[in-house]
Design a protein around this nucleic acid. Structure first.
Lengths: 160, 160
DNA sequence: AGGAAAGTTCAGTCAAGACTGAATATTCAT
DNA sequence: ATGAATATTCAGTCTTGACTGAACTTTCCT
């Protein structure tokens, strides 16, 4: 956090952070800046304030704020407040990856929902087409069930 | 295919196809047009030619061509050729969804690779940061393993 | 072989969406 | 309560990437 935050040890993770940014960001469907932010926070030894993040990323205040909120919403970052210190700190969560998995599950659930309505709307169609829609439903149904299981399993492993 | 392809039964799946397009396309990281194409082919009773697709989608020739190739590369669509007929037909594959899962696995493998190099590059860092990079590696390692398993399992179920 | 139909490529145009920054709202030490 | 520090919002700008269409290459019937 502000007073003691000497990030000298993190010097020149730049390229690494950029890679993270581009690739994880894209994989998660985030804007690039969110990925870079994730990279920075993942490698920061201490919580960072908004303005430190802004400076490190070379981003605007608005961007830093919005991307931070996005990562919080996705469960990878946590906001910590120290009483007596005005500005909040942001940290990479220990259970960040379980948050990612949860996110993936959620997305898949949306598609299952889509498949369900599609199957219903397809009831008047010839059998061949209905079969296609049924396949889709079956697939997403399978995936949702399995991802739920994976999430459980991962959380078990990670609790110990 | 051309001569017999009377798509009248498919009339006004339009909205459904649009939904598919927007949502599946996005989920898979495809351009919207690829998603719409997937929707059209999934609901088509017979193989469709490039120009039929172009007309149905209201797209350009170039777009129809490139999006078709993209779906083929992703394993959801197949190109069928009938000798004596010049133009090729395009069909939604029966094992399309297993192709999607394969794609997801492949993407995750890329991230595992990223995590692996990150972990190596982080060897000089303080323990706390190394732990973060190890977590990331552990996560993707877990996911790759599990997705491989899921792919197997899904293919089993779908063979019968 | 010849050439017309089919398919691909890619430079250019256009639209979606990421980022900025200044205006606005909120917070909290005093 | 007050106001200075902190954070959010959003209209406008700029970047990225999707789509078009015409020029080019390939295919394969005759």
């Amino acid at each position: 956090m502000s007073p003691a935050a000497d990030n000298s040890s993190a010097m020149d993770d730049g390229p690494l952070v950029e890679d993270f940014g581009q690739r994880i960001g894209r994989a998660m469907g985030w804007p690039p800046m969110a990925g870079r932010l994730a990279g920075v926070l993942m490698l920061s030894p201490a919580p960072m304030t908004l303005s430190e993040l802004q400076a490190t990323l070379g981003a605007s205040k608005g961007s830093a704020s919005e991307m931070t909120r996005l990562l919080i919403a996705n469960g990878t970052v946590e906001r910590v407040k120290v009483p007596g210190v005005r500005q909040a700190g942001y940290v990479w969560r220990d259970d960040a990856w379980s948050g990612c998995l949860q996110h993936q599950l959620h997305q898949t659930e949306q598609l299952l929902e889509l498949a369900r309505t599609a199957r219903e709307r397809g009831l008047g169609m010839p059998e061949a087409q209905q079969a296609r829609l049924r396949d889709m439903y079956t697939y997403y149904d399978f995936m949702v069930g399995q991802l739920r299981r994976l999430l459980d399993e991962y959380q078990q492993l990670h609790a110990g």
